[in-house]
């Protein structure tokens, strides 16, 4: 791999932000990469702000901070506005239902309509994070294998495996421009 990859995921509590980070990070550990994941959150179980910072590297990780994320996943307006200034060379993946795109940014931005896809195809918004996971896995092709991500996802998510597999495929099969 030869480098350090920073993935910053942020949104509301209850959206599965931490679960998403856990799956990516566990896959990296299983593939013998060095991985750290920091989690910060408010007091609320649902609705408060949540951020997870995952660093994946083939060398030991000193700083676990995502200072210049390769991938910023913004699942809320607050997350997008707070963390967009950090991204210089990386990609911002945002949820258009909550986020209004800032056209003034120089980095690449991708709108992934995960909420709508989850509701239309699976009937519940709760699968939106797995749609994003599928898409991220596609972008991380070469670093993390799809089979491994799916395997870990099913270990980490206790119920509704068929729905989650479908949500994953929805994200994975989105065109990568």
């Amino acid at each position: 791999m030869g480098k350090r990859i920073e993935v910053l995921i942020s949104g509301f509590g209850g959206q599965g932000v931490v679960r998403l980070g856990q799956i990516l990070a566990q896959v990296s550990v299983d593939e013998n990469l060095y991985t750290t994941m920091l989690v910060s959150h408010g007091t609320e179980t649902r609705g408060g702000y949540v951020r997870t910072q995952v660093v994946i590297s083939d060398a030991p990780v000193d700083s676990p901070v995502c200072e210049d994320p390769d991938f910023l996943v913004a699942m809320s307006k607050a997350a997008y506005n707070k963390f967009k200034p950090l991204v210089s060379q990386g990609v911002i993946i945002y949820e258009p239902y909550y986020v209004e795109q800032d056209h003034g940014l120089h980095c690449r931005q991708i709108s992934v309509n995960a909420r709508e896809m989850a509701i239309n195809e699976l009937g519940r918004e709760i699968y939106a994070n797995v749609v994003v996971l599928g898409y991220l896995t596609r972008l991380l092709d070469g670093t993390l294998s799809k089979d491994q991500v799916l395997k870990v996802m099913l270990q980490k998510i206790p119920k509704f495996h068929e729905e989650n597999k479908k949500a994953f495929e929805l994200g994975y099969s989105l065109a990568v421009s």
Partner: peptide, 10 residues
């Protein structure tokens, strides 16, 4: 601190 106790690592 919170980052060590709630932080995830190998």
């Amino acid at each position: 601190d919170q980052l060590v106790t709630d932080g995830w690592e190998t």
